[in-house]
Amino acid sequence: MAKGRIVIDEGRCKGCELCISVCPPEILVVSSRLNERGYLAVEVMDMDRCTGCSLCAVICPDVCITVYRQVPARSR
């Protein structure tokens, strides 16, 4: 299974939950933290299970998700 990591810009998140609805390993949840604009931002429950598939970022209307994926190291 591919390994990935996402970074959510919580200040940008409007808590629409579209990312939660498309995440295959179901690792995204609504946090209990209100951001500065009054939304409950989404957070990652279990990053170890993130595959870096990017579906959350593709559907995020507020472009608040950055996605990294582990790839085999290039030979130098």
Partner: peptide, 26 residues
């Protein structure tokens, strides 16, 4: 995972500003 490196696969495009949009959630 010693033989792996992390690659950026999705980021905010340059052709967007940093402004927060006024659009409704979703």
């Amino acid at each position: 995972m010693n033989n792996a490196e992390e690659k950026l696969v999705f980021e905010r495009p340059r052709s967007l500003t940093d402004a927060h949009t006024h659009y409704c959630p979703g």
